[in-house]
Design a protein around this nucleic acid. Structure first.
Lengths: 232, 232
DNA sequence: CGCGGCTTTGATGTTCATCAAGTAAAGTGG
DNA sequence: CCACTTTACTTGATGAACATCAAAGCCGCG
């Protein structure tokens, strides 16, 4: 009897390229040592500075990574969907302290994999290590490019960019969806105030580019939005 | 006779933690396959999109990494000093194309190490791989934090932050030094226009916080500059 | 049902980009 | 080496974009 089938990790592992390089023993050690936790929408998963000896991997739901600066303002670094590689960026710093805070923006299930296990895989399994590095590189550059792109845009451009990204990366290109973030959070993500995010939404609504009703949003004129995103 | 002593890599390797995990054979293969190139101040080392099968490592001098967007504007991502780990972030993307442009801002010596060699080390040498990942993580987060910090500051804060960083990371805490960047480049780094960078310098000069004469600069009131950097 | 947080709009002021124009410095060719 | 051209630097004036402040409506929740 194949013991690995008993472990629910299997499903995750199939979905995620991250684990595609593990052999059966390595796979089993993840199965036996991982911890799974559930969080309700709005709950804080971990706060920056807290001790952390796990790679926290998103199985389902939606989370945000953010930083609080001394000025009290919050800056959202990334919104993560299940099985994306952002978590790789949050581990293996000098200290074992969390670099970023993390909160569920929808009901979420998270998997905690001990870091010493990951470390062992990196040390012993070259394919795993190389894949890890490739993904780390990719996600780092994506985040950095995102910051630069955002910086290059004005208010309308940033909001348009955010909406298009959201539709593409989280809602598979659908034009109607629920906004997972509050206006305030969108501001924290794109570097604008809540009021101005709302003003941009209102303008887009009046210009019939979007339909928006509370959290419900529909992109009516994708081409216009794309133009505004490129330069708005 | 110790053949490794013949290779000038040795000095680099001693200085750089990056190679501290290589064994003698791995070390020798770097020695024999690396290429060294020199660039004059202002010369472009590589442009984004060009084919690149090397890890380009800075031995001496000073370089900038930057991106040109469709709007024609240039965004400087990082200024690198010799032996820092930023280059690790520029390799192992899907394509073998350079993600960022790179130019010498002082006369520089660069070492080109074939990527397939680095790849082999990662695959076969766990310590090397783990060290690579740790450094990659560290530098990525540093760059990201930098973007967030810059975003949180106004013009004066950004210029102050830039000057303090420059003094600390490049000039070992000295208060008198030559600005390695033009006013325009400083603007491209901190996300402000050339004119406003100059205005901030002029203000700081009138307030006796700095002395500035062309490229020559002296930090007179470090505490004030730090306050401005933190906010305002 | 009333409180607090989220949303919305308007009015106002600050900050910064843009435009313009002039000076200084640095590179170029005769 | 000097005239010439170009590039970098500097200051001021103006306007646009955005933050801030204020007030009111909405919604969910205890």
């Amino acid at each position: 009897m194949d013991k690995s089938k008993e472990c629910e990790c299997k499903e995750c592992i199939i979905k995620s390229l991250f684990f595609s390089n593990l052999n059966i023993d390595e796979f089993k050690s993840i199965c036996s040592s991982k911890i799974q936790k559930e969080f309700k929408k709005g709950e804080i998963i971990i706060e920056q500075g807290q001790s952390l000896d796990f790679l926290i991997y998103l199985k389902s739901g939606l989370v945000k990574y953010y930083i609080k600066l001394h000025d009290g303002r919050t800056y959202i670094i990334n919104i993560s969907v299940p099985f994306d590689d952002f978590p790789l960026l949050t581990v293996f710093n000098e200290t074992h302290l969390a670099r970023y805070s993390m909160a569920a923006i929808e009901d979420s299930v998270l998997c905690y994999i001990p870091l010493n296990l990951i470390r062992e895989f990196i040390m012993r399994n070259g394919n795993f290590a190389f894949d890890f590095i490739s993904k780390l590189n990719y996600i780092s550059c994506k985040i950095i490019n995102n910051f630069i792109l955002i910086r290059s845009k004005n208010l309308r451009g940033r909001v348009a960019f955010f909406l298009l990204n959201l539709a593409k990366t989280i809602y598979n290109g659908k034009n109607v969806f629920e906004l997972p973030l509050s206006r305030k959070e969108i501001g924290e993500l794109i570097g604008m105030t809540t009021e101005n995010v709302i003003r941009a939404f209102s303008e887009f609504r009046k210009e019939k580019i979007i339909r928006i009703n509370g959290k419900e949003i529909e992109i009516l004129e994708k081409e216009k939005l794309e133009k505004i995103s490129i330069y708005g």
